[in-house]
């Protein structure tokens, strides 16, 4: 067991995949010579060569689409976007092609492809580079969407994504590439579609994923210090969504706060709240409280961006407002 940063965990997962399966190759903007915008693929070009580490033109539609074609022909591409916001350019390929082609071919075509993209705000990149569209993709049938919050989960989810015969979108919280955590030396993976109860408690359930886990854990610490017993759930997978684990928790705590690092409206947490309301309303002691970032374009200014971002204070206010805790 060693403590490594999330970037290293991803790197380890990608390297072992490239080492073990010749059908696996990578494509993306500046992943080769440059080493990746977030340095995840630093050194890969030298180690694996230009046929397997492909620097692409700035043509998100074309290289994502080429990944689909290569996957349809039996290869297993891993495609990197430089930013979640840039996936917008390629949404037609992701949704209309990667996710739909299996269904519209009556099951004849599979797309075993991993799409990786840094997601989220917090480093003053302004409105076009700070968005979290994994929540949009979670609505699309025919693909899976995961988002890790720790190095352990990043490696475990990446291994499962690479093994999966479907398109799997891996949103990587940009603010967490340098986050540290314990990762075992021996092999493990994490089943896609299973949430993780990271802290057990009996008074209130807090749910988030990805970077949202950071303010959520801080809020949980502060509540614990006040004597509140908090249960914490990391969704890890937005699609499939493990609503069962959330419902089980609510049946224990009777109180639910859902927390999104993305904009509050129309996010995955609206879905969690609706599902829990349908399945477990009789277990709820009060309203389902929803916390998210403000419904505004992401501002550049540091102070303004911090104000918009979900933080522990926002979560504590929701807990107090909803349940008087």
């Amino acid at each position: 067991m060693a403590e490594i940063v999330l970037r290293e965990a991803l790197k380890r997962g990608l390297e072992e995949a490239l080492d073990n399966d010749p059908r696996i190759f990578m494509m993306g903007e500046d992943i080769g010579e440059y080493g990746g915008a977030y340095a995840v693929t630093d050194g890969f070009l030298k180690k694996y060569g230009p046929e397997r580490i492909k620097d692409t033109p700035i043509s998100e539609q074309a290289f994502l689409g080429a990944g689909i074609g290569a996957a349809a022909a039996g290869l297993r591409p891993i495609v990197e976007f430089m930013s979640m916001s840039f996936t917008l350019v390629a949404f037609d390929q992701i949704v209309n092609m990667a996710a739909n082609i299996r269904y519209m071919s009556g099951g004849q075509i599979s797309v075993p492809m991993v799409i990786r993209a840094p997601t989220g705000a917090g480093v003053q990149l302004g409105a076009t580079h700070s968005q979290s569209f994994e929540t949009w993709l979670a609505e699309v049938p025919g693909m899976k969407v995961v988002c890790p919050s720790t190095p352990y989960d990043a490696l475990g989810l990446l291994r499962s994504a690479i093994k999966d015969d479907n398109p799997v979108f891996m949103a990587e919280p940009a603010l967490l590439y340098g986050a540290k955590g314990e990762v075992p030396d021996e092999y493990y993976d994490i089943e896609i579609g299973k949430a993780d109860v990271t802290r057990e408690g009996s008074d209130v359930t807090l749910v988030s994923y990805g970077y949202g886990m950071r303010p959520l854990n801080e809020a949980a610490d502060r509540l614990s210090a006040k004597g509140v017993s908090v249960e914490v759930i990391d969704l890890r997978s937005l699609s499939p969504l493990d609503i069962t684990t959330v419902v089980s928790s609510v049946q224990k705590t009777y109180k639910l706060v859902v927390v999104d690092n993305a904009r509050r409206t129309g996010g995955i947490m609206a879905e969690v709240a609706a599902e829990v309301q349908e399945r477990a309303s009789e277990w709820l002691d009060g309203p389902i409280m929803r916390v998210g970032s403000d419904d505004v374009p992401w501002p550049y200014n540091r102070g303004l961006e911090r104000e918009v971002l979900t933080d522990a204070d926002d979560i504590l206010r929701a807990v107090e407002y909803g349940f008087g805790l």
């Binding site: 080429a66 689909i68 074609g69 290569a70 022909a73 092609m97 082609i101 519209m104």
Partner: peptide, 29 residues
Amino acid sequence: HIFDAAKRFMGGHAIVAGQMPLAAGLALA
């Protein structure tokens, strides 16, 4: 959306020009 993977007929595609990178990717493989 006619497909016959066994005959390597990889589809009719209905978003205009959306099929072009699919073809490039098959060729890449």
